[in-house]
Computed example of a mutant assay.
Amino acid sequence: MKKAKIWLLVALASVFLLVGCKQSQKETTTLREDPYYQEKFLMGTYVRIRVYDEGKEDALKPAFDRIKALADKITINQEGSEVDAVNAQAGVKPVKVSDDVYHLLKTAYDYSEETNEAFNMTIGAITQLWRIGFDDARKPEQSEIDNALQHIDYHKVIFDDQEQTVFLQDKGMIIDLGAIAKGYITDEAVKVLKKEGVTSAIVDLGGNVFVLGHSPRGEDEPWNVGIQDPNQARGTTVGTIKEANKTVVTSGIYERFLEVDGKKYHHLFDSRTGYPFDNDIAGISIVTDKSIDGDALSTSVYAMGTKAGLEFVEGLGDGTEAIFVTKDDKVYLTKGLEDNFEIGADSGYTLGNRDDL
């Protein structure tokens, strides 16, 4: 593959894209070298969409409209949130929700079950206690954590398919979809773009990135996707992969954390202990077809640690892959990425030997 002469570094939250701007001579579709671009601050992060199809600038508005509408329904601690309404009636009565929220909540329930609570939709009692990522973040007293743990049980989320209602049986329960919501919303934005006739685009929701179609370099040319270095500022890569029509979702210990007495506490919580997961992983990137799956998996696989996480992802058997960056500066890949991933020459990382795990 010829290298493009000019590279555009698109810094997209936790994952970013290196997009070659020179088009191949065999390019037959009408794509722009400079995309139509829009950025908005939503859900506490910068949401960015780039559309490369000539004449498709108007597709940006309905895509952003869909993102905002869903964010308003799903985000907790936000006026008008349907999830807030469910939480407010915990232990009191069922709440009827929209099709979007009902589908998302049922998917979150399935992931809570399938991952043996590594992902837990009712983690809200803990996340709202620590508040990591907000100005009022703090380390709670152990007694507070012990009390909050009593209100985490996804089995007590009751669904009524006929009435489309959701009921939390325990009055202290809080649903928090922060580990899956952006993935769902990313997929929905991509659906809107496709409906508008877009064939080449990048959608980024603060670490949930979807690369639609092929890059402007040429027909059938994939995007070069850079994987965020979890120990450095945004825009620093550990390496790159080449993908098309895929999503890359990263979770890690960077950016959102609380430091108390010299110890850092990140935002990925263990629903059994009430504390952040503590293992060998600094960051993990999931590569898959749907961003909702990548979002939920990035959290749940992080909880497993590198060795078990590698085995779990490879056992899925659906084309899902993962990149693990460990705290000792090693990079481990699922087998499907071994011929795809190119480690950065100056990254300071080396490829790890799985036999050493």
Rank of each mutant, 00 (worst) to 15 (best):
A148L: 12
F167I: 03
I343Q: 07
E321V: 01
N87G: 06
V249L: 10
D339V: 05
V190S: 02
G317M: 12
M43V: 07
V301D: 06
A90C: 04
A4S: 15
S291T: 15
K263C: 01
R50D: 09
K194A: 04
K96Y: 06
D58G: 11
T236E: 05
Y46H: 13
D355N: 15
D278P: 04
K242D: 08
I132F: 01
K335Y: 09
L105I: 12
V301H: 00
K2P: 02
E82M: 08
G124E: 02
K96T: 07
T107P: 01
N279L: 05
E82Q: 13
I74H: 07
H266G: 10
W223D: 08
F16N: 03
G207E: 09
N77H: 14
A13P: 05
E338L: 13
G124V: 02
E243Y: 00
K61L: 12
V19C: 09
D261N: 13
V51M: 08
E117G: 00
D356F: 12
K246M: 02
F159V: 12
I202Q: 08
R131T: 00
P94W: 11
W7G: 03
K290H: 13
Y154D: 07
D170Y: 01
E314W: 08
I49T: 08
E255Y: 09
F312R: 14
G178K: 04
